[in-house]
């Protein structure tokens, strides 16, 4: 009781100038408040609200219920986009994790020239998706690129033309995407491996467990937080997949490499079909939330950490 009393009293004493207390900090934080409340929160609520309207060329508050969503899910282009993202996402997730972990483990073997290797694996990450897409478009060029080079070597029937073949165009994107992104995950995993106690290695050596088996059975389970972080990173990156597709394939051939982010952009700024863009972007946000909730639960739900 006493503590509540003093609390109330001190609060009452401060009341007259509470708003002006710490005034400079509040003034200085105005840009942050504006960004958080108006741009991020306001913008998101605005888009979700207008996704239930019949907005076309201009946003209009004409209630249309779930009509935009019904149209969205009956659009073939959207369904192709979703399917592409699912396939690309699944493969990219698995391959990034596997490749990045193997590279990190190799670099962790106390090798010479670690810095050089790491520099080479990571530099693509400094490049934009536009640059990445354009380079790989050139390397995969059927007339002059890899296909041509292999044919010149004697395998005249060699066929590898992902950018013009709807069946395998996603693999063309995947090759470029992995090249750009694995370096980052490798660095994060390497940091995780460095965080593992030397004594663990000594203990497994004493027990006569092989190196590969140690990684699989002991190290990987210990690195769960690192894997979760990587998973979130890769996952939210995948949902945003846009520039790479624009640069490398422009969604083609046909609509075979369309992705949701591109669907949003085309409906909003190309097709004068705002409502579709709002509905599609709301779906994108929903998928991010689906990815994030399990992570947030694992990270913050189980036990309290700093």
């Amino acid at each position: 009781m006493a503590s509540i009393d003093t609390d109330a009293r001190s609060r009452a004493g401060r009341r007259p100038n509470r708003l002006f207390k710490n005034m400079n900090a509040k003034l200085a934080s105005l840009p942050m408040m504006f960004t958080a409340l108006v741009v991020f929160l306001g913008g998101t609520i605005w888009t979700i609200t207008y996704s239930f309207t019949s907005s076309g060329l201009l946003p209009r508050l004409e209630w249309a219920g779930l009509e935009q969503y019904a149209r969205l899910w009956s659009s073939r282009k959207w369904l192709v986009s979703i399917e592409n993202l699912a396939i690309y996402g699944f493969l990219s997730l698995i391959l990034t994790l596997v490749i990045a972990f193997i590279l990190a483990a190799l670099l962790d073997r106390k090798i010479r020239g670690e810095d050089t290797f790491r520099t080479i694996f990571l530099y693509p990450f400094a490049l934009s998706f536009i640059v990445t897409g354009l380079v790989w478009q050139w390397i995969l060029n059927p007339q002059f690129g890899v296909q041509d080079v292999v044919r010149d070597l004697g395998w005249t029937n060699f066929n590898f033309d992902p950018l013009n073949n709807p069946e395998i165009v996603l693999y063309g994107l995947l090759i470029a995407g992995l090249w750009q992104g694995t370096g980052l995950i490798m660095c994060i995993m390497l940091a995780g491996l460095r965080g593992i106690d030397e004594d663990i290695w000594k203990a497994t050596r004493v027990d006569g467990i092989g190196t590969v088996k140690t990684y699989l059975v002991v190290i990987i389970p210990m690195m769960r937080p690192v894997f979760v972080t990587s998973l979130v990173l890769i996952g939210s990156g995948i949902v945003k997949l846009y520039d790479l597709v624009v640069a490398q394939t422009s969604g083609g051939p046909g609509i075979s490499s369309e992705v949701p982010a591109k669907y949003v952009m085309t409906s909003m700024f190309g097709g004068q079909n705002l409502g579709q863009g709002f509905a599609a972007s709301t779906m994108m946000m929903l998928s991010v939330i689906i990815i994030l909730i399990p992570w947030a639960y694992l990270e913050f739900g189980g036990r309290k950490r700093g």
């Binding site: 934080s29 942050m32 408040m33 960004t35 958080a36 409340l37 741009v39 991020f40 929160l41 306001g42 913008g43 998101t44 605005w46 888009t47 979700i48 207008y50 946003p59 939210s236 949902v239 945003k240 982010a261 949003v264 952009m265 909003m268 705002l274 863009g277 709002f278 599609a280 972007s281 709301t282 994108m284 946000m285 991010v288 994030l292």
Partner: peptide, 20 residues
């Protein structure tokens, strides 16, 4: 405000493009 900012970082940009 800080929490909203952090959550905002995870939301796909496409959601906020048009309001901006």
């Amino acid at each position: 405000f800080f929490s909203i900012l952090m959550i905002g970082a995870f939301i796909p940009y496409q959601v906020m493009l048009y309001p901006i």
